[in-house]
Simulated scan of single mutants.
Amino acid sequence: MYHVHLPKLEQMGLIEPSGNWYDIRRGPRFDEIEPLLRVIDDHRKKLPGDVL
């Protein structure tokens, strides 16, 4: 399987692979986007379509 988004997220420091791409953890910059992810999660029912 070829991953497109995971390498980009790794380059941005948002995730880190833990041996393989099926086991990932938060990267050193994850804390920068966590508030945004919480807002998205809190309002997921108001988002259009199958966004999440």
Rank of each mutant, 00 (worst) to 15 (best):
M1S: 13
M1V: 15
Y2N: 15
Y2Q: 15
Y2C: 12
Y2P: 12
Y2I: 14
Y2R: 15
H3P: 03
H3Q: 08
V4A: 07
V4Q: 06
V4L: 10
V4F: 04
V4H: 04
V4Y: 03
H5Y: 12
H5G: 13
H5W: 11
H5I: 13
H5C: 14
L6D: 00
L6K: 03
P7Y: 00
P7V: 08
P7W: 02
K8D: 05
K8N: 07
L9A: 07
L9D: 02
L9N: 01
E10W: 09
E10Q: 09
E10I: 14
E10V: 14
E10K: 10
Q11N: 10
Q11L: 12
Q11W: 04
Q11V: 13
Q11E: 13
Q11M: 10
M12K: 09
M12E: 04
M12L: 14
M12C: 06
G13F: 04
G13L: 07
L14K: 04
L14C: 05
I15K: 00
I15Q: 00
I15A: 02
I15P: 00
I15D: 00
E16M: 13
E16N: 11
E16V: 15
E16H: 09
P17T: 13
P17F: 10
P17H: 09
P17A: 12
S18K: 14
S18H: 14
S18R: 13
S18D: 15
S18P: 08
S18F: 13
G19A: 12
G19P: 09
G19R: 10
N20D: 15
N20G: 12
N20Q: 12
N20T: 13
N20R: 15
N20M: 13
N20S: 14
W21R: 11
W21V: 09
Y22S: 05
Y22Q: 09
Y22G: 05
Y22K: 07
Y22N: 12
Y22E: 12
D23V: 05
D23L: 10
D23C: 08
D23M: 09
D23K: 11
I24R: 01
I24V: 10
I24Y: 01
I24K: 01
I24A: 04
I24P: 00
R25Y: 04
R25K: 10
R25Q: 08
R26C: 07
R26S: 10
R26F: 08
G27I: 08
G27K: 03
G27V: 05
P28D: 01
P28A: 02
P28H: 04
R29P: 01
R29H: 07
R29E: 09
F30P: 02
